[in-house]
């Protein structure tokens, strides 16, 4: 058993916390920027939807399924060449953000698609009857209608990403979860593990609370 040096721990904890926020933040941003369009694309190209396209639907669906069904640790390693190509390095929090971002995009695309399905079909039919294009239906009916659900989805995604980011240590991504594994688990410092886990729980709680409040606020 090692003695725990608390001042050392806090010196480590603060940057780790920053790394977690950085990785999850980048991934969330990517999820919003690319996951939303991907989810919309999957929804509108489906059979009998407003912009039916079998090929696009198949490709999008396949991408999402492949990413979601591959265990994250394996995805992290598989994507190393791609990561190196995108950020120029395969280690550090930026590098970990790439696979994390890809998972986030796929995961959020599915969540968004589910929220879009919850939008009343009759309203879409009414819009079509008025002569609306699919783009107008997406921007005026589908996205506003799914907005509150999408915020809730983003909360779920953020919480999941905090969990996934613990595995970022494999590529030297750092973060609170990594700290918990390295110090708490490998070095048997149970108190460190406990502190970091408590920190993670607090972080998840905060995300959940903000997410729920925001989602309720936009609901009409």
């Amino acid at each position: 058993m090692n003695e725990t040096n608390y001042s050392d721990l806090f010196d480590n904890l603060l940057p780790a916390f920053g790394e977690t926020l950085e990785m999850c933040g980048i991934a969330l941003l990517l999820a919003v920027l690319l996951g939303v369009p991907l989810g919309v694309l999957s929804y509108i190209t489906a059979q009998r939807s407003i912009c039916q396209n079998k090929l696009v639907n198949l490709v999008v669906g396949f991408f999402i399924n492949v990413v979601m069904s591959t265990p994250f640790v394996i995805l992290l390693v598989l994507l190393l060449p791609f990561t190196r190509f995108v950020v120029g390095t395969s280690i550090g929090p930026e590098a970990a953000s790439v696979p994390l971002g890809i998972v986030a995009i796929a995961f959020y695309a599915r969540l968004v698609e589910g929220n879009l399905h919850a939008v009343d079909n009759g309203v879409i039919e009414a819009s079509l009857a008025m002569g609306a294009t699919w783009l107008r239906i997406v921007t005026n009916v589908l996205l506003p209608g799914a907005f509150s659900g999408m915020i809730r989805g983003l909360t779920v995604l953020a919480v999941t990403l905090v969990g996934y980011s613990a595995m970022a240590g494999i590529v030297g991504g750092g973060g609170v979860g990594d700290l918990a594994i390295r110090f708490g688990y490998y070095r048997y410092q149970t108190d460190v593990m406990l502190i970091t886990v408590l920190l993670l729980i607090a972080l998840v709680q905060v995300i959940q609370t903000i997410g729920e409040k925001a989602s309720r606020k936009v609901q009409k």
Binding site: D120, A126, S127, P144, G145, F147, K220
Partner: peptide, 29 residues
């Protein structure tokens, strides 16, 4: 389709738009 109006059993109004915005929506289209 702009020259044909349609109303429905379940009304099918856009819930995120106000009454005026719903009417305006048809004209924007």
């Amino acid at each position: 389709r702009h020259s044909i109006g349609m109303i429905f059993q379940q009304f099918n109004l856009v819930s995120t738009k106000t009454v005026a915005q719903n009417v305006a929506f048809a004209m924007e289209i």
